[in-house]
Protein backbone atom coordinates (compact mmCIF):
# COMPACT_ATOMS: atom_id res chain seq x y z
CA UNK A 1 0.00 0.00 0.00
CA UNK A 2 2.73 2.42 0.95
CA UNK A 3 4.58 1.57 -2.26
CA UNK A 4 1.56 2.59 -4.25
CA UNK A 5 1.23 5.77 -2.22
CA UNK A 6 4.92 6.60 -2.57
CA UNK A 7 4.73 6.12 -6.32
CA UNK A 8 1.46 7.73 -7.23
CA UNK A 9 0.61 10.27 -4.58
CA UNK A 10 3.72 10.92 -2.51
CA UNK A 11 5.53 13.22 -4.93
CA UNK A 12 2.53 15.53 -5.07
CA UNK A 13 1.91 15.44 -1.32
CA UNK A 14 5.55 16.18 -0.55
CA UNK A 15 6.49 18.84 -3.08
CA UNK A 16 4.62 21.98 -4.01
CA UNK A 17 6.42 22.23 -7.37
CA UNK A 18 4.93 18.85 -8.28
CA UNK A 19 1.46 20.05 -7.28
CA UNK A 20 1.87 23.16 -9.39
CA UNK A 21 3.06 21.06 -12.31
CA UNK A 22 0.02 18.83 -11.95
CA UNK A 23 -2.39 21.76 -11.87
CA UNK A 24 -0.58 23.21 -14.89
CA UNK A 25 -1.11 19.94 -16.77
CA UNK A 26 -4.79 19.91 -15.86
CA UNK A 27 -5.25 23.47 -17.12
CA UNK A 28 -3.33 22.77 -20.31
CA UNK A 29 -5.30 19.60 -21.08
CA UNK A 30 -8.64 21.36 -20.68
CA UNK A 31 -7.78 23.84 -23.42
CA UNK A 32 -5.64 21.56 -25.57
CA UNK A 33 -8.31 18.82 -25.78
CA UNK A 34 -10.84 20.69 -27.92
CA UNK A 35 -8.13 22.57 -29.84
CA UNK A 36 -6.45 19.31 -30.82
CA UNK A 37 -9.71 17.62 -31.80
CA UNK A 38 -10.70 20.46 -34.11
CA UNK A 39 -7.21 20.63 -35.60
CA UNK A 40 -7.54 16.94 -36.51
CA UNK A 41 -11.09 17.39 -37.83
CA UNK A 42 -10.05 20.34 -39.98
CA UNK A 43 -7.10 18.34 -41.31
CA UNK A 44 -4.79 20.92 -39.83
CA UNK A 45 -2.77 18.57 -37.61
CA UNK A 46 0.55 19.84 -38.87
CA UNK A 47 -0.53 23.44 -38.68
CA UNK A 48 -0.49 23.13 -34.89
CA UNK A 49 3.17 22.31 -35.23
CA UNK A 50 3.89 25.29 -37.44
CA UNK A 51 2.01 27.60 -35.08
CA UNK A 52 4.12 26.34 -32.19
CA UNK A 53 7.31 27.32 -33.97
CA UNK A 54 6.04 30.66 -35.11
CA UNK A 55 5.55 31.74 -31.49
CA UNK A 56 9.32 31.81 -30.95
CA UNK A 57 10.37 35.26 -32.26
CA UNK A 58 7.61 36.95 -30.28
CA UNK A 59 8.72 35.20 -27.12
CA UNK A 60 12.31 36.22 -27.92
CA UNK A 61 11.34 39.87 -28.35
CA UNK A 62 9.45 39.68 -25.06
CA UNK A 63 12.57 38.23 -23.45
CA UNK A 64 14.78 40.99 -24.89
CA UNK A 65 12.46 43.71 -23.66
CA UNK A 66 11.61 42.41 -20.20
CA UNK A 67 14.01 39.57 -19.43
CA UNK A 68 12.72 36.19 -18.31
CA UNK A 69 9.22 37.54 -17.71
CA UNK A 70 6.39 35.24 -18.53
CA UNK A 71 3.72 37.84 -19.32
CA UNK A 72 6.05 39.68 -21.73
CA UNK A 73 7.18 36.50 -23.46
CA UNK A 74 3.62 35.20 -23.67
CA UNK A 75 2.31 38.42 -25.11
CA UNK A 76 5.13 38.48 -27.66
CA UNK A 77 4.48 34.87 -28.56
CA UNK A 78 0.77 35.49 -28.91
CA UNK A 79 1.31 38.46 -31.22
CA UNK A 80 3.81 36.55 -33.37
CA UNK A 81 1.45 33.56 -33.61
CA UNK A 82 -1.53 35.69 -34.59
CA UNK A 83 0.54 37.57 -37.19
CA UNK A 84 1.67 34.30 -38.78
CA UNK A 85 -1.90 32.97 -38.75
CA UNK A 86 -3.20 36.20 -40.23
CA UNK A 87 -0.67 36.40 -43.07
CA UNK A 88 -1.07 32.72 -43.85
CA UNK A 89 -4.82 33.12 -43.92
CA UNK A 90 -4.59 36.06 -46.31
CA UNK A 91 -2.18 34.26 -48.63
CA UNK A 92 -4.41 31.16 -48.64
CA UNK A 93 -7.42 33.26 -49.48
CA UNK A 94 -6.00 35.44 -52.21
CA UNK A 95 -3.40 33.23 -53.92
CA UNK A 96 -3.48 29.65 -55.23
CA UNK A 97 -1.10 28.57 -52.42
CA UNK A 98 -2.82 26.04 -50.12
CA UNK A 99 -3.23 26.56 -46.39
CA UNK A 100 -0.48 24.16 -45.30
CA UNK A 101 2.04 25.65 -47.71
CA UNK A 102 1.38 29.24 -46.71
CA UNK A 103 1.50 28.37 -43.01
CA UNK A 104 4.79 26.51 -43.55
CA UNK A 105 6.33 29.47 -45.36
CA UNK A 106 5.48 31.99 -42.68
CA UNK A 107 6.37 29.80 -39.75
CA UNK A 108 9.82 29.09 -41.21
CA UNK A 109 10.48 32.81 -41.60
CA UNK A 110 9.19 33.37 -38.09
CA UNK A 111 11.25 30.54 -36.62
CA UNK A 112 14.44 31.80 -38.30
CA UNK A 113 13.87 35.30 -36.92
CA UNK A 114 13.28 33.76 -33.51
CA UNK A 115 16.48 31.70 -33.52
CA UNK A 116 18.40 34.73 -34.80
CA UNK A 117 17.07 36.91 -31.99
CA UNK A 118 17.69 34.36 -29.30
CA UNK A 119 21.23 33.57 -30.42
CA UNK A 120 22.28 37.22 -30.72
CA UNK A 121 20.53 38.52 -27.62
CA UNK A 122 20.16 35.59 -25.28
CA UNK A 123 21.92 32.40 -24.30
CA UNK A 124 21.34 28.88 -25.54
CA UNK A 125 19.87 28.11 -22.14
CA UNK A 126 17.06 30.55 -22.89
CA UNK A 127 16.47 28.96 -26.26
CA UNK A 128 16.27 25.54 -24.64
CA UNK A 129 13.83 26.96 -22.15
CA UNK A 130 11.52 28.25 -24.87
CA UNK A 131 11.83 25.14 -27.00
CA UNK A 132 11.43 22.60 -24.21
CA UNK A 133 9.89 24.51 -21.32
CA UNK A 134 10.17 23.55 -17.66
CA UNK A 135 6.97 22.37 -16.09
CA UNK A 136 8.67 21.88 -12.75
CA UNK A 137 9.49 25.59 -12.68
CA UNK A 138 5.93 26.82 -13.10
CA UNK A 139 5.20 29.78 -10.80
CA UNK A 140 1.98 31.50 -9.73
CA UNK A 141 1.95 33.89 -12.68
CA UNK A 142 2.25 31.16 -15.26
CA UNK A 143 -0.29 29.01 -13.45
CA UNK A 144 -2.71 31.92 -13.52
CA UNK A 145 -2.03 32.44 -17.22
CA UNK A 146 -2.68 28.77 -18.03
CA UNK A 147 -5.87 28.70 -15.99
CA UNK A 148 -7.10 31.88 -17.67
CA UNK A 149 -6.38 30.53 -21.14
CA UNK A 150 -8.14 27.26 -20.30
CA UNK A 151 -11.18 29.13 -18.97
CA UNK A 152 -11.30 31.46 -21.94
CA UNK A 153 -10.88 28.58 -24.39
CA UNK A 154 -13.69 26.52 -22.89
CA UNK A 155 -15.98 29.56 -22.88
CA UNK A 156 -15.10 30.43 -26.46
CA UNK A 157 -15.60 26.86 -27.64
CA UNK A 158 -19.02 26.80 -26.00
CA UNK A 159 -19.94 29.91 -27.97
CA UNK A 160 -18.61 28.85 -31.38
CA UNK A 161 -19.18 25.10 -31.05
CA UNK A 162 -22.23 24.69 -33.27
CA UNK A 163 -20.90 26.99 -35.95
CA UNK A 164 -17.46 25.43 -35.91
CA UNK A 165 -18.82 21.88 -36.19
CA UNK A 166 -21.24 22.84 -38.96
CA UNK A 167 -18.50 24.72 -40.78
CA UNK A 168 -16.07 21.79 -40.53
CA UNK A 169 -18.65 19.34 -41.82
CA UNK A 170 -19.90 21.31 -44.81
CA UNK A 171 -18.76 24.93 -45.17
CA UNK A 172 -20.72 25.55 -48.38
CA UNK A 173 -24.15 24.85 -46.85
CA UNK A 174 -23.62 27.48 -44.14
CA UNK A 175 -22.12 30.06 -46.44
CA UNK A 176 -24.96 29.66 -48.94
CA UNK A 177 -27.35 30.52 -46.09
CA UNK A 178 -25.40 33.70 -45.50
CA UNK A 179 -23.56 32.56 -42.35
CA UNK A 180 -20.08 33.91 -41.89
CA UNK A 181 -18.08 30.70 -41.55
CA UNK A 182 -14.79 32.59 -41.68
CA UNK A 183 -15.46 34.06 -38.24
CA UNK A 184 -15.44 30.63 -36.62
CA UNK A 185 -12.20 29.74 -38.35
CA UNK A 186 -10.54 32.97 -37.18
CA UNK A 187 -11.68 32.60 -33.57
CA UNK A 188 -10.47 29.01 -33.66
CA UNK A 189 -7.01 30.01 -34.95
CA UNK A 190 -6.72 32.56 -32.15
CA UNK A 191 -7.58 29.83 -29.64
CA UNK A 192 -4.87 27.64 -31.17
CA UNK A 193 -2.28 30.38 -30.69
CA UNK A 194 -3.47 31.12 -27.14
CA UNK A 195 -3.19 27.50 -26.07
CA UNK A 196 0.17 27.18 -27.74
CA UNK A 197 1.47 30.19 -25.81
CA UNK A 198 -0.01 28.84 -22.62
CA UNK A 199 1.71 25.51 -23.18
CA UNK A 200 5.16 26.75 -24.10
CA UNK A 201 6.09 27.88 -20.58
CA UNK A 202 5.34 24.45 -19.20
CA UNK A 203 6.24 22.10 -22.01
CA UNK A 204 8.06 24.28 -24.52
CA UNK A 205 6.82 25.14 -27.97
CA UNK A 206 7.81 21.75 -29.35
CA UNK A 207 6.24 19.56 -26.67
CA UNK A 208 3.08 21.66 -26.25
CA UNK A 209 1.83 20.41 -29.61
CA UNK A 210 2.25 16.86 -28.34
CA UNK A 211 -0.25 17.37 -25.54
CA UNK A 212 -2.58 18.89 -28.12
CA UNK A 213 -2.41 16.40 -30.98
CA UNK A 214 -1.71 12.98 -29.45
CA UNK A 215 -4.80 12.83 -27.18
CA UNK A 216 -6.93 13.99 -30.13
CA UNK A 217 -5.56 11.40 -32.54
CA UNK A 218 -5.88 8.72 -29.86
CA UNK A 219 -9.52 9.64 -29.21
CA UNK A 220 -10.29 9.25 -32.93
CA UNK A 221 -10.07 5.45 -32.48
CA UNK A 222 -12.71 5.35 -29.73
CA UNK A 223 -15.29 8.12 -30.02
CA UNK A 224 -17.70 8.83 -32.85
CA UNK A 225 -19.03 12.29 -32.21
CA UNK A 226 -17.29 15.60 -31.75
CA UNK A 227 -18.32 16.11 -28.13
CA UNK A 228 -17.22 12.64 -27.07
CA UNK A 229 -13.95 13.07 -28.96
CA UNK A 230 -13.27 16.23 -26.98
CA UNK A 231 -14.21 14.64 -23.65
CA UNK A 232 -11.96 11.68 -24.33
CA UNK A 233 -9.05 13.76 -25.65
CA UNK A 234 -9.21 15.95 -22.56
CA UNK A 235 -9.23 12.89 -20.31
CA UNK A 236 -6.26 11.40 -22.15
CA UNK A 237 -4.45 14.72 -21.81
CA UNK A 238 -5.13 14.82 -18.05
CA UNK A 239 -3.98 11.25 -17.56
CA UNK A 240 -0.88 11.79 -19.67
CA UNK A 241 0.00 14.85 -17.61
CA UNK A 242 -0.37 12.97 -14.34
CA UNK A 243 1.36 9.77 -15.45
CA UNK A 244 4.12 11.70 -17.19
CA UNK A 245 4.86 13.69 -14.05
CA UNK A 246 4.94 10.54 -11.92
CA UNK A 247 7.28 8.81 -14.35
CA UNK A 248 9.50 11.86 -14.65
CA UNK A 249 9.75 12.12 -10.85
CA UNK A 250 10.32 8.44 -10.11
CA UNK A 251 12.65 7.65 -12.99
CA UNK A 252 14.33 11.05 -13.01
CA UNK A 253 13.35 11.86 -16.59
CA UNK A 254 12.75 15.30 -18.13
CA UNK A 255 9.08 16.01 -17.54
CA UNK A 256 7.97 17.47 -20.91
CA UNK A 257 9.05 14.50 -23.05
CA UNK A 258 7.78 12.09 -20.37
CA UNK A 259 4.28 13.62 -20.56
CA UNK A 260 4.22 13.63 -24.35
CA UNK A 261 5.53 10.06 -24.50
CA UNK A 262 2.75 8.87 -22.22
CA UNK A 263 0.29 10.58 -24.57
CA UNK A 264 2.13 8.84 -27.41
CA UNK A 265 1.62 5.54 -25.59
CA UNK A 266 -2.11 6.23 -25.40
CA UNK A 267 -2.10 6.93 -29.12
CA UNK A 268 -0.25 3.72 -30.03
CA UNK A 269 -2.50 1.67 -27.78
CA UNK A 270 -5.60 3.25 -29.39
CA UNK A 271 -4.20 2.68 -32.85
CA UNK A 272 -3.87 -0.99 -31.96
CA UNK A 273 -6.94 -1.67 -29.84
CA UNK A 274 -9.42 1.12 -30.60
CA UNK A 275 -12.85 -0.16 -31.65
CA UNK A 276 -13.21 2.55 -34.31
CA UNK A 277 -10.96 1.26 -37.11
CA UNK A 278 -8.14 0.27 -34.77
CA UNK A 279 -5.74 -2.29 -36.25
CA UNK A 280 -6.89 -5.30 -34.24
CA UNK A 281 -10.46 -4.44 -35.10
CA UNK A 282 -9.67 -4.21 -38.80
CA UNK A 283 -7.78 -7.51 -38.76
CA UNK A 284 -10.57 -9.31 -36.89
CA UNK A 285 -13.18 -7.92 -39.24
CA UNK A 286 -11.23 -9.04 -42.30
CA UNK A 287 -11.05 -12.52 -40.84
CA UNK A 288 -14.75 -12.44 -40.16
CA UNK A 289 -15.45 -11.46 -43.76
CA UNK A 290 -13.24 -14.23 -45.08
CA UNK A 291 -14.86 -17.05 -43.13
Amino acid sequence: MTVVYDWLIGPFADFSFMRRALVACLALSLGAGPVGVFLVLRRMSLIGDTMAHSVLPGAAVGFMVAGLSLPAMSLGGFVAGVVVALFSGLVTRFTPLKEDASFASFFLISLAIGVLLVSTHGSTVDLMHVLFGSILGVDDTSLLLMASVATLSLGAFAVIFRGLVAECFDPSFLRALGARGGVYHTVFLILVVLNMVSGFQALGTLMAVGLMMLPATAARFWAREVWSLIALATAVGLLSGYAGLVLSYQLNLPSGPAIVLVAGGFYLFSLLAGPRDGMLYLILRRRHLRS
Binding site: C168, D170, R224, V226
Partner: peptide, 9 residues
Amino acid sequence: AIDESFPIS
Protein backbone atom coordinates in the same frame (compact mmCIF):
# COMPACT_ATOMS: atom_id res chain seq x y z
CA ALA B 1 -17.06 18.25 -50.94
CA ILE B 2 -18.29 16.64 -47.71
CA ASP B 3 -15.87 14.85 -45.42
CA GLU B 4 -17.69 11.54 -45.04
CA SER B 5 -15.49 10.43 -42.15
CA PHE B 6 -16.56 13.42 -40.05
CA PRO B 7 -17.68 12.18 -36.62
CA ILE B 8 -21.29 13.30 -36.46
CA SER B 9 -24.61 11.58 -36.02
